[in-house]
Amino acid sequence: MTATAIAVARIDQLFAAVMLFGIYSLLSAALFVVMDAVDVAFTEAAVGAGIAIILMLGALALTTREQRPVPRRRHWVALAVVVATGSGLIYGTLDMPSYGDPGAPAHLHVIPRYLNQSMAEIGIPNVVTSVLASYRGYDTLGEIVVIFTAAVGVIGRLGVAPEITALVKSGGMQHHLILRITAKLMLPLIMVFALYVQFHGDFGPGGGFQAGVIFASAFILYGLVFGLEDATKVAPPPVVHVIAAAGVLLFALVGVAGLFLGGNYLDYGVLADEPTKGQHLGIMLVELGVGMTVAASMISLFFAYASYKPEE
């Protein structure tokens, strides 16, 4: 991994740098699996190695592929900053509990309740989902607002041209027969998989975010193969925007519903007659909101990049 990272730092070919970053991202996803963070690994693979790379390549396609070499002065400045920060951090780690130590405070405080009580309080086995959607559901709401903001931002900055003048030629790769057929075969599978991930998140790794990303990548694949024009026919940009906004609203309004039913904001327990049922319902709705916003935001990001045409 270190080698990959250093290679990114040294290389002037931006395209290669981006690709190397993709590898770096995949490697870290693997590392996450090793460290028991399957949900995170899933996400990192989909985002770091997937979406981020697509975005970067898109940006490269719209700009330039070569980087000017780093001037010497800057190099030293950067090195100084890095050495100072890094040695500070190393100094900080000296008193940290060692890796994997079960006696570390992080394993003793707060966490036990999640591990021991969540089954009774929320009723789903995937603790990550419990914490994500319920105990710290508010952070997750914040998170989809962030991605929504970014989508709004990219739309606002790049804009989605009314008549799509695509960089990806409107014909796409239609003439690649094999690609088309594979894609046609793959797409339904990916979509089904996405749905599975969406609703299986309670039990295994997965959830709205991962599902959203997978769904979006299926769509992006479609766009790449069949051309942007077809893609926008399937999902007109305005509709996508509406879905993105609706996802955020759904999540936020589930919280408001809690308010009206006499609970605190985002208290799902009051949504049904039994707290765990309420939690279930709440988490499902909220995850749906997450999935909608993420998928729609990613798709609109793709549209924005793909259809961007410099002004005048």
Binding site: V40, V47, M56, V128, E143, A150, V154, R157
Partner: peptide, 13 residues
């Protein structure tokens, strides 16, 4: 999970 999303959002923008 949250931070990854934040990261990709920043990247996109």
């Amino acid at each position: 999970l949250t931070a990854i999303v934040v990261g990709v959002a920043t990247t996109a923008l």
